[in-house]
Structure formats: structure tokens, C-alpha cells
Write a protein that binds this DNA or RNA. Sequence first.
DNA 1: CACCAGATGATATGGTGTAACATAAGCATG
DNA 2: CATGCTTATGTTACACCATATCATCTGGTG
Lengths: 160, 160
Amino acid sequence: MNPTQINRTLSAAEAACRASGARLTAKRKNVLAVLLRSQKPLSAYDIVDQYSQDYGEPIPAMSVYRMLDFLANENLAHKLNSENKFLACAHINCSHHHGTPQFLICCSCNKVSEIAIKSDLITALRDTVKEAGFQLQSSQLELDCLCADCAQRSPTCADT
Amino acid sequence: MNPTQINRTLSAAEAACRASGARLTAKRKNVLAVLLRSQKPLSAYDIVDQYSQDYGEPIPAMSVYRMLDFLANENLAHKLNSENKFLACAHINCSHHHGTPQFLICCSCNKVSEIAIKSDLITALRDTVKEAGFQLQSSQLELDCLCADCAQRSPTCADT
DNA sequence: CACCAGATGATATGGTGTAACATAAGCATG
DNA sequence: CATGCTTATGTTACACCATATCATCTGGTG
């Protein structure tokens, strides 16, 4: 994402927080900016490092976790449970409403694409789960994939 | 699982390992037995504790990880990536071939059900992923659910 | 200004996982 | 049975992820 897009996205995030009565403080905004500038999901400690590089002041890991919680609650960021990493929501700028996102994670280069799976597929999944006697609570999926670039390079994925 | 079933399953596991040329050593078998006796997925350190309780001798965490790797390679156990926990494969006794399993995880009581999602649903998922320019590498899904028992008690799930 | 609530900082600690190297146990062969 | 190879297990140290707890700061309100 280029700097112009990032600024536009940060403005949109501010507007969204104003609308919901949440306070997007300077540091929370910086953490979001770090995520936006990253091409890949970051761990909380990655963010700590990047933050001090980008802003010239250290930030405690504890604070980063809290800011990530905040951002996730405001739907400005997501957590990848399978990787213990975080990324900015890909749709902060979009005006339309978004359901629970799904993530395609390249197991080779760690690139992540946030997509919205067709609702009928999610419904089918929900029905299948119901048949097994469970209720689907969240439709956030994290799928182990290979991105096009990496697929071209090698036919299989050796990593975890 | 009752003791009789466990013994039967352990025998099946032994047979499977013999067939594949893998060595199901006594300790590996014990780790598998710990998993089989558990109603819930266990962390490696849970297994360390339970192992020493059940067998009266301590086992290093490192060894448990290695034994879990072994069991996972032999398809005798699975790892829940979203929870960093492990469980015995539910189909060690079954004779038919099994594809990649899917897991329904109760976010309230942590009970897990291992199911096989209909192949056409998986295919649809694979196609959706392909449209997004990715290749699905693993069809192991870990779905955040509420089991029937917990759903009866409360309509929603507050936990992570 | 005094107060309160929310945000952030500091410290400590626990859980998860692996790297690197040492030791022991099974198994072939001469 | 001695040798040596391969595999399994033990030991130690360490890195990373995450949270609990308490302290401090900041911004807004009366």
C-alpha cells in the first residue's frame, strides 16, 4: 500500500472510530499504520520492533497487545489464530458492510489475502456443522494455501 | 473411550505402524494412550503432566513434541493449529481411508469433534480459493463452534 | 482545580516450541 | 559378542507469544 492510500485508510479508520465513539489515539493509529505498511502479517513483537524503527520511540509489547485488541474490536485489524500474527483489515476504506473475513495464507512466503467466501458456501458449511451437532460460532477461516507466485516456483509447499 | 476400546485402538495403531514400517515404541504408545483417554485436546505440556501421573515417570517436553510429530506423521494424532493442542485421530480403528480431517471445536467447553466434510463442499472451497489466485494446500479446517450441550446452556459463546 | 475514566508503562511470569548436543536403545554385520 | 550404524530419547538452553498486576499518565467533566 502506498503512502497516499495509507493516509486515506487512516482517515477512514478515524472516521469509523468517531462514528462508533472509540478513540483512535496517536499510538493506536501508529500501530495500525505499521500493519498497513507491512506486506505480511506481523507478530506483536514484530510490531514492537517496527514501531520503534518507524517512530523512533520504543513501545512496550503489552501496549501493542492492547492496541491490537482495540483495533480488532473496531474491525480495523484481524488476528490470524493459526499464526499468532496480526494484519490490517483489507476493507477499512470500503463503504459496504463486511461479514467475517476468511484468510488465504501462503505457507511458502506468508503472504495473506483476505477474502469473502460466497455466502452460500458458508451456509453449506454451517449446515454441515449443524448435522454434526455443533453450531458454527465464527466463520473466520484460515486456509493453508500457496499463492500464485510461489506455486509457479515450486509445485508443493514444504513448510508447516 | 473406555479401556477396552483404548486397547483395541492401540492394537490397531500398532498394526498400522507395522504395516508402514514405523516403530510405535512403548513411550509413543503411552503418549497416544494419554490422548485417547482424554476427552479434550491436550497441549504438549498437558501430556507431560498426564504422562507422569499415568505412568509414574517423568517425560521431557521435548520428547513429547517428538512423539507427537511421529504420531501426526502416522496419522494417529492431529494438531489443532488454532489451539496449539493435540488429539488422537478419531478413526484409528476404521479400516477405510480418510482424507484430511476437519475439526469442530466447542469454544465453551473445548470439546472437539473430528468430522469429514462432504467432498463437494471441500471442492467448492478449493475452487473459491483458486478464484482468488491461491492453491489450497491443506483442507484441515478448525471451526469455532458451540457444542449441543453448551448451546443448550447459553445461546452464545463469550470465550475466544 | 479536583476528580474520574480510560489509556499507557513497567515488571514479572507462564505457556509454547525448537536448536543443539549428549546419551541410550535397537539392529545389522562380521 | 564386538562393532558400528540408525533411530529414539534425554538434557539444557533459549526464543517467542501472551497475560496478570500494579503504577503512571492523560483528557475530559463538574
